[in-house]
């Protein structure tokens, strides 16, 4: 199988990978780069658990070809664990019991992080619901996640 050499930045570090043409960004991140926070809940673009940031924008790594990562800046939760805003979000997820089985949690935190970073003040409930609408959660019914994110935003935006 022909392999394609690509380089990109992953969580702030220059990286290189040899990817096969049909490899998904998800596979490259999990299998080659060890970024296990990226989850596969469906593989068809419908659940959002595989969300990562590409050039700062949330996209679905399960339906993005790995070779399209060339030259891009990719961020996974592993790269945000030291970020002060992310730490607040994670703490609030614990306080609000917003991580039940935890499978959607990394993606929820990433889309929540983006939303909070980009909003002017504390986003409204409706805005948070919309911001996280691309990630399914089967455990929480979303309420605790919405409350955790809004509470995190209150701290971060102070």
């Amino acid at each position: 199988m022909d392999r394609i050499r690509i380089s990109f930045r992953l969580n702030g570090v220059e990286r290189e990978a040899f990817v096969s043409p049909e490899e998904r960004l998800l596979d490259m991140l999990r299998d080659d780069m060890g970024m296990k926070s990226v989850k596969e809940g469906c593989g068809t673009g419908d659940c959002g658990t595989c969300t990562v940031l590409v050039n700062g924008k949330p996209v679905l790594s399960c339906i993005m070809p790995a070779f399209q990562a060339r030259g891009k800046e990719i961020t996974t939760l592993e790269g945000l664990n030291e970020d002060s805003a992310m730490k607040v979000i994670q703490d609030k997820f614990r306080e609000y019991h917003a991580a039940q089985c935890g499978f959607c949690t990394p993606a929820m935190e990433i889309v929540g992080y983006k939303l909070i970073k980009e909003s002017d003040g504390v986003p409204s409930k409706e805005e948070v619901k919309e911001g996280i609408s691309g990630v399914l959660c089967r455990c929480t019914g979303y309420y605790d996640i919405v409350d955790a994110l809004r509470s995190a935003a209150e701290v971060i935006k102070k």
């Binding site: 049909e22 593989g43 068809t44 673009g45 339906i63 070809p65 399209q68």
Partner: peptide
Amino acid sequence: IVAGGTDLWPRIRDLEVRPERLLDIS
């Protein structure tokens, strides 16, 4: 041709299409 891949990639994954060659226009 692959642009965003959101339509094409799931079909490749599902073995619905099996192209010999791709032109990535991203």
